[in-house]
């Protein structure tokens, strides 16, 4: 049955009055937001990004190296370097100098890993501004999509193989190191993740937060699924183990030792290949991995091996 036209018109005339939308943020909320942002600086090559769009790379935390702000984890650092390379941007400066109107919307932002729908960072937040000045169209690109998008720029099969080795073997090793290495203590974890934003990081509650974080880490990059043999314990035992932290996870520890025994040769292989290759993606990925371990996890078993890597010096020069 069709609704009579007159009735439809009356119905459609509601609401009778519409006011503009209510402001979403207050100045203090914006200040809190700004305190978490680290803007990229521009270089002469800054041309790629359209003025109508902006990018925010959501990362776990930042670490300062010679006045340069770097993401604290290897995946975020690698992707940050790749984004900078592709778009002609420079890494953010601790002094917050060099920010111009053109790049004032492209930045790094520290977030909790729970800010990402798949609970892993980095996350790329892309805003495409509308012509009418309204709320931009925002898209969230999750971590796995960012990492997978790198493959599009690789054509050589050897490059793809090396890229996969870095994405799986090296990142798995970093994750195992976080879960198992005895020198990864709360102060180290608070450098990698944004635990500093909580006033309680120094209190006994930090243990609760860290135990929750350690329960999430195995889910990142499908680590738990790919190494299901390491996680056969019951959920209850897992929880207890994570609360008392790495006390009796013998399978993971054995796996860590095994990974460490392989990594020296693996790094030499990758370093040699990257040195000879002109592929920027591989160079940035290796740089990101080496720097994040060397700057934060230097006391760990993995950090000691990285110190001896031939590419480490080159990695520092890459930034």
């Amino acid at each position: 049955m069709e609704v009579p036209q007159a009735l439809r018109q009356v119905f459609d005339s509601f609401p009778l009055k519409t006011y503009p939308s209510i402001t979403a943020s207050t100045s203090s909320q914006l200040e809190v937001l700004e305190a978490r942002k680290f803007y990229f600086t521009s270089s002469s090559k800054t041309t790629s990004l359209a003025k109508s769009s902006s990018i925010i790379l959501g990362i776990n935390n930042v670490v300062e190296y010679r006045d340069i702000i770097l993401p604290s984890d290897p995946v975020s650092l690698s992707q940050c370097l790749i984004i900078c390379h592709k778009n002609g941007l420079k890494l953010p400066l601790a002094t917050r100098k060099g920010i111009t109107d053109e790049n004032a919307s492209n930045c790094l932002m520290t977030l909790s890993h729970q800010a990402a729908p798949d609970s892993q960072l980095p996350i790329l937040i892309e805003d495409n501004k509308k012509n009418d000045g309204g709320e931009p169209i925002r898209s969230l690109i999750p971590s796995y999509s960012i990492v997978n998008s790198n493959k599009k720029d690789l054509s050589d099969s050897s490059d793809i193989l090396i890229n996969d080795m870095m994405d799986t073997k090296l990142i798995d090793l970093w994750l195992t190191c976080l879960m198992v290495d005895p020198n990864v203590n709360p102060p180290v974890l608070s450098k990698i993740f944004t635990l500093e934003s909580f006033p309680s990081v120094t209190s006994s509650l930090s243990g609760l937060y860290i135990s929750a974080l350690l329960q999430d880490i195995p889910r990142w990059r499908s680590y738990e699924i790919r190494h299901s043999n390491l996680f056969r314990n019951s959920k209850l035992k897992d929880t207890i183990t994570s609360v008392v932290r790495k006390s009796d996870n013998s399978a993971l520890q054995a796996f860590y030792i095994h990974q460490l025994s392989e990594v020296r040769d693996l790094l030499e292989l990758i370093s040699d290949y990257v040195l000879e290759s002109d592929c920027m993606i591989l160079k940035m990925k290796l740089t990101g991995f080496l720097l994040s371990v060397d700057l934060i996890l230097y006391d760990t078993e993995l950090g000691k091996i990285i110190k001896q890597c031939s590419y480490l010096e080159k990695a520092y020069s890459n930034i």
Binding site: A24, S25, Q29, V32, L33, R36, G58, L111, S112, H113, Q114, A115, A116, P117, S119, I125, R138, S139, L140, T194, S197, F198, S200, L205, L208, Y209, A212
Partner: peptide, 23 residues
Amino acid sequence: CWRTVSNSQSRALDVMLQSGNDF
């Protein structure tokens, strides 16, 4: 209480910024 906010689909920076743990 100990609260944990996990973002499911929100694209709001307010939600992303306050995701995580707080007491």
